[in-house]
């Protein structure tokens, strides 16, 4: 078990993602960030803080996708996590979904469904801290902090200061 990313690497990755968001959208006028709880929500707030340092206030929200999961019947029911609409809503906006790890793509599929029920954004983009491969759906990220080749048996553990008291990304198990 070794840290693939440490605190400084995560900061650097998020800064790069922030600059890429500005570049791709040619400014931030219609950009809103939507984090997928739990850790995606913290990452969305961190990216918003970096964008603020760069001079723009970007609305941030969170989007719980539990009710749209396709694996609900395979596990015990899970508690719902908070959904918070960003100020100004998502209608006609460039929505950047933020999550910690991109794996099968099923979470993002569920997020796209959940998003469709809240409104109709102009574009939907995806930012992830780690892309670990093994996609099961035709989904890709627009912004990737770190591409991390893994075996399907391994799991990727993202820890964030806000809830885990440490910033790190590790590969666990083999």
């Amino acid at each position: 078990m070794s840290a693939i990313l440490e605190s400084a690497d995560i900061v650097r990755a998020l800064k790069r993602i922030s600059h890429e968001i500005i570049e791709k959208n040619q400014g931030l006028d219609s950009v809103v960030l939507l984090g997928i709880p739990t850790r995606g929500a913290y990452l969305a707030h961190r990216i918003a803080a970096i964008l603020k340092e760069l001079g723009s206030d970007v609305p941030v929200g969170t989007l719980d996708i539990t009710m749209h999961r396709d694996d609900l019947r395979m596990r015990p029911p899970r508690p719902l996590l908070p959904t918070v609409m960003p100020i100004g809503g998502i209608e006609g906006k460039d929505v950047v979904l933020v999550d910690d790890v991109l794996f099968s793509g099923r979470t993002i599929r569920a997020a796209l469904d959940a998003l469709g029920e809240l409104g109709r954004p102009k574009t939907v983009q995806l930012a992830v801290l780690v892309d670990r491969g093994h996609r099961e759906l035709p989904i890709r990220a627009d912004y990737v902090g770190k591409n991390l080749p893994t075996s399907a048996k391994e799991s990727v553990k993202v820890s964030l200061m806000e809830i885990d008291n440490i910033d790190s990304v590790e590969i666990v198990g083999a």
Binding site: M67, H68, L72, L80, L81, P82, T83, E117
Partner: peptide
């Protein structure tokens, strides 16, 4: 408590234009 907090979250996510969830 889990039923009450689930109900509170459901209120937020069914507040939009579509009230229906596929769950």
């Amino acid at each position: 408590l889990s039923i009450l907090s689930t109900a509170a979250e459901l209120e937020k996510i069914t507040d939009g234009p579509t009230k229906k969830l596929p769950t």
